[in-house]
Amino acid sequence: MTHGVEFTHVVDRTLNALADALGADGAALMLIDDHDRPRAVGGSDADGRWLELAQEQAGAGPAFESLSRDTDIVIDDLRAARPSGFPGVAEKATGVRAVLSVPLHADDRVIGSLDFYDRVSHEWQPAKVRAGRRLAELMVMVLEALAHKSTFSGQS
């Protein structure tokens, strides 16, 4: 892995760009560590970083659901009662309302989750969910490049 500071900067700038591309207020990243624990990695802004930290501390949230079920999780309002929302996470991530969590895949396994979020609650349109899924592929490309995986220096 490359130097941590460089990693963090590239990840945060990528999250910013992906949020812009989707038209979301922000994006944040959770990755599974070497001990199979989901860990908060970064966010396009402070709200995003809080969203990931709150989930990591609670051991629950849309990113966890996305990771464990290996599917997109759409949350129209994080403050809603379970199972529609995650009020415990919302208490700490106060700036976040609507969340779309998309699993990240590399080498046919789930390596983490990409969260897009908005500061107002709303229903996520299917087209936006599909777009989020494709944008997750770009996040994986950046992570692969940072990790200098064999796929990155492989075949054209």
Binding site: T2, A17, A21, L143
Partner: peptide, 15 residues
């Protein structure tokens, strides 16, 4: 998107 491509290049350079 161009910004994402820049990050892919930046990550590649870092690696």
């Amino acid at each position: 998107y161009a910004n994402v491509i820049e990050q892919i290049l930046t990550a590649a350079i870092a690696a």
